[in-house]
Amino acid sequence: MIAIIKYNAGNIRSVLNSLRRLGYDGLITDDRSEILAAEKVIFPGVGEAGTAMKYLKDRELDRLIISLKQPVLGICLGQQLLCRHSEEGDTDCLGIFDSRVCMFPLVDTVPHMGWNNFLSVRGPLFKDVSPDDDVYYVHSYYAEVCSSTTAVCDYILPFSAAMQKDNFFSTQFHPEKSAGTGEKILLNFLKL
């Protein structure tokens, strides 16, 4: 079973729909034992970092998430919350990735919205994915490139399109909304 962590962030239903299209089932849950027992955990989210972290802390989901041993995939806000700190609401995050989340400088259209390719990709999530493939982004904050960065996207500046440390994986883009390329990346995670 794939657990999708339920919290006060949008986009969770899309992830479940996407799993089902790929022939997997998922369970949207904030139940500790269900999350702990899951083969894999997806930590999705669209929303504001401060409110999301507060929600997780109030339910002690913050400590649960960082203790997980199975493969975990953070998506969009999920990736940002796995970083050390976010400028959005000056929020201390979960600290899996040693990266800061900053707002894009307003020298071009913000949010970064739409399809973009990669400067580089590496690691198991990107098996059979080319840097020229496009995936779908919607975000105004980005995670700085750090030692955990596995894919780099360039918009205004190079930022972490994906990250990995041990069993924690993440993408800034939305694989569940990224057509065939997104499905390939999700399947790579599901088959880990």
Binding site: R13, S14, N17, R21, Y136, E176, K177, S178, E183
Partner: peptide
């Protein structure tokens, strides 16, 4: 629609 399509 949401069940069927994989784009925003």
């Amino acid at each position: 629609i949401a069940l069927e399509i994989n784009i925003p």
